[in-house]
Amino acid sequence: MADKVLMKGNEAIAEAAIKAGCRHYFGYPITPQTEVAAYMAKRMPKIGGTFLQAESEIAAINMVYGVASAGLRAMTSSSSPGISLKGEGISYLAGADLPALVVNVQRGGPGLGGIQPSQSDYFQATRGGGHGDYHLIVLAPSSVQEMAELTVKGFELADKYRMTAMILADGTMGQMMEPVDLNFDIKPAPEKPWATTGTKMQRKHNVVNSLSLIPEELEKLNIARFERYDLVKKNETMYEEYMMDDAEIAIAAFGIAARVSKNAVKEARKRGIKAGLIRPITLWPFPDAPFKKAAEHVKEFISVELSMGQMIEDVRLASECKVKVSLCNRVGGMIPSPEQVLDAIVKASK
């Protein structure tokens, strides 16, 4: 326990970002992620960093755009309605190939919705969210430790691939406290020769831009971007498998849903049902491989989600619809109980 501290997920994200060298944070109050901003407000002035409460989420994401253009690690955080506002800026970040970190501590929607946990921004996060052809690297933490670790990872991947990374958490992940070990190895940020740091009259000017009026050129840019995305798919896909070796029923779940599901899988095993769990850690790129493999031996996949069924589409695609995929869900801020998931497992096993 020596090095572990008890922290809220939101605070762990903030501290991990600072450890990763992020010195520029821009946010706007919204429940249930405001602790990120509150933590940054306290810490940044002490370490010579910038905390700025922007006038809106739209301003905050564009402040991130500015810092990222200057070649520095920048982040913003919000919750669902605020992420929608950031959608424009996120699309521009993608169009200008800028690395940045965006945190979404999801709450129930649509519209103003509620403030309790949800996973209903899965489509928004994994399909882009803003306009145009692009992807974010979407990381789904399932513990406070992962909130911290994936924040560091998010900055590293963002820089490596010149992409915007998103932490897709939810209200429980943000609000819960667990022991965290914050001693990570931090890789230094790579050189960013494309950044607008001033020509010093010694190089051709750098331009950060997403405008491209000649269709032939815009097409090339899009294709090149997706070639980079292919590398991300190849190199960076992350997932956890739990009791999958001989599983006949496989749960697919991320974040808080995966934790609830783990309890259910344990209980099912006690009852002699061969259940297992595949937990995607990257939601984009989605881990197709374990689902394809599992489709060879499972009878049914159950997608456990805090949404009306969004990730289930990726489970179907990844398993090529070879076996039945069913949904076990709660929405609107409700969380499935281990008993509900266990019932679904028992039903599927019959």
């Binding site: 326990m1 008890l6 249930p32 403030i115 429980t172 609000q175 667990e178």
Partner: peptide
């Protein structure tokens, strides 16, 4: 935590 146990703490939160 001090006694080397695994722990979690989850508050209700509201307006």
């Amino acid at each position: 935590l001090i006694e080397n146990k695994e722990v979690s703490w989850l508050p209700s939160y509201g307006p």
